[in-house]
Amino acid sequence: MRRARGIWRALWRNKVGMASLIFLCLVLAAGLFAPLLSAHDPLAVDMKNRLGPCTAEHLLGTDSLGRDILARLLYGARTSMGLALCVMLATVGIGSLLGLAAGTFRGLFDSLVMRVTEVLMSFPSEVLVLALVGMAGPGMENAFWACVLCRWPWYARVARSLTLGFRDMNYVAYARVAGFSRTHILVRHILPCASGEIAVLATLDCASVLLMISALSFLGLGVQPPVPEWGTMLGEAREVMILHPWQMLPPGLAILLVVAAFNFLGDALRDALDPWRTLPQPGERP
């Protein structure tokens, strides 16, 4: 409890980080409550009103099939952010679990996991994702699994090296001497210290996963039309880019702002979660 309060206070002090957190929460809420915020159906085609300008009815205009861009942007937040967060959850879960276990139990299991990560990390991950999705066929599910498969090795390696670093700490030595089991030490001592660093990495990585999913959708390999997704929208806008370049703006800006916000939040979290840096600042203690 005390620790949670300290982290919150450190995060509160960082204005940019706080603004990013609020912005991301707003985007998520906008995605969740999209039906309340927009009266338009994001899939309703209106060929009479193609590429329409910004009006009171269509705040951001309409796209090449006459669909309301604002509605598509809001529903797209669901797909883009939701998919990115799911990928991160699965990646962090699988990666750090395997990494922590490898660092704790060492031996054959450790070598096995590390060799697999080395194989996966020896390919550029963007190329590997493209190859996997290309082989499995385009689609949301395949894009999800391809992203997870290509990213977990990073988390496994970070979690393992953190575990090895904490193993040499004297408090872990005390716990071993006192006869606590390795699982107990992992849960009590190593996980709370390692989770901060992993959370920071995951937040920063959210941005690149979002970019990766948008890029896949832009190329037609990820989320399939007509489902609204920012990358798909960007791809559709590209077809009319010469005559109507502003069509690129709404999805492009949405991706830019969310990616930037994730990066700022990651930096702020790194400062806030550092166990050695969350000590109360001078003058703060009542």
Binding site: N170, Y171, A173, Y174, A178
Partner: peptide, 24 residues
């Protein structure tokens, strides 16, 4: 050691890493 949990204890010289930084 396995049969006598808590039967051994130690205090190290380097106190900074002797306590878990997140513990009270």
């Amino acid at each position: 050691r396995a049969a006598n949990r808590g039967g051994m204890a130690v205090v190290f010289q380097d106190y900074v890493t002797s306590v878990n930084p997140v513990f009270t």
